[in-house]
């Protein structure tokens, strides 16, 4: 494809992708010590009691930013570290704190908050970037950045395994697929947003905004069921929320083992079924996207443009 659009010029999409990858890598590592802390919850009465030790110096983590941003292997390693450090932190919690990991809460809460906001902004910004690009490759790059940021958010939700899977599958496979397809059809739209039907678009966006507002009002007020936080932690103190620490057989909450447990016990059948789905998807994709050849049309002698052409379409 010799499309002038993909002439190697560094468009804004790729820049943002690179930047976001770098930031992700660095900050995920920075979060790692924070992993042992509390889940970001609402227990405001705990906040006032916090005045804890500092996080590790961010300088240690910045050395990793030199790496190129497109091989997100960092988080994977981090997760191993995280596990260890998380466990370690749990056990090295300061005894003078009644609540495990509570000393981390203030700085972790503010730093977690800052991180959260940063990556939330990246998510939102990246997604807006995606839907406003005329250039498809730029959109794909923005998508990748968004996925990285989403992976970070997953990590903040203590879903490390899913974060890794997110990057692997989404950013690593699906977006690659998109790139391949874009290379096949590289026709950008003349204009991304058409002014025709503007009123309709405005109405729809208004309805969407209303829906989202209602949704947010509900979601914002969602409170956890009392006692739900306690099921995770192994501490005996049932009144305080704890970091999601060990589960019964010693693995972390959110780890591969945990997911595996759930996947191969409760969700075994969907797991197997999904493999079938993937198979069907592959077959279907091949069948649909395969070019169908048409043999040349034979017109018998003397019949002008006769319709009696034999078309044997190989199916």
């Amino acid at each position: 494809m010799t499309d002038p659009q993909y002439s190697g010029r560094c468009g804004p999409g790729r820049f943002i992708t690179a930047l976001s990858a770098a930031i992700v890598v660095s900050l995920v590592g920075w979060i790692a010590p924070a992993h042992g802390s509390n889940a970001p919850t609402l227990d405001s009465d705990l906040i006032e009691a916090q005045n804890q030790r500092e996080l590790k110096a961010p300088g240690d983590q910045t050395s990793r930013t030199a790496r190129r941003g497109d091989q997100p292997s960092g988080p994977m390693q981090e997760s191993g570290d995280l596990r260890a450090s998380g466990a370690g932190l749990d056990q090295t919690g300061s005894p003078r704190d009644r609540n495990v990991g509570q000393r981390k809460l203030s700085e972790t809460s503010s730093s977690v908050a800052a991180l959260f906001w940063l990556f939330a902004l990246m998510v939102v910004g990246g997604s807006i970037f995606v839907i406003t690009r005329r250039n498809l490759i730029s959109a794909v790059m923005g998508m990748v950045g968004t996925f990285f940021a989403i992976a970070v958010v997953y990590a903040m939700l203590y879903a490390h395994f899913l974060a890794a899977i997110q990057v692997l599958v989404y950013a690593g496979a699906i977006m690659v697929l998109f790139v391949f397809v874009i290379m096949i059809l590289n026709k950008p739209e003349a204009e991304p947003w058409s002014a025709s039907g503007l009123l309709g678009k405005v109405v729809v966006l208004g309805a969407l905004a209303y829906l989202l507002a209602r949704l947010f009002m509900v979601l914002w007020g969602v409170e956890p069921l009392p006692g739900s936080l306690l099921a995770i932690s192994a501490t005996s103190d049932t009144t305080t929320p704890a970091a999601p620490g060990a589960i019964v057989d010693g693995a972390d909450w959110g780890s591969t083992r945990g997911v595996g447990r759930a996947l191969f016990t409760s969700y075994l059948f969907p797991f197997e079924a999904v493999s079938l789905v993937l198979l069907i998807a592959v077959v279907g994709a091949v069948a649909v996207a395969r070019p169908h050849e048409r043999p040349p049309v034979h017109i018998p002698e003397g019949v002008p443009g006769g319709p009696k052409s034999r078309q044997s379409s190989r199916s």
Partner: peptide
């Protein structure tokens, strides 16, 4: 779009 508008109306 109509679906979204309809959902908004329902809400």
């Amino acid at each position: 779009g109509l679906l979204v508008v309809g959902a908004g109306c329902i809400f």
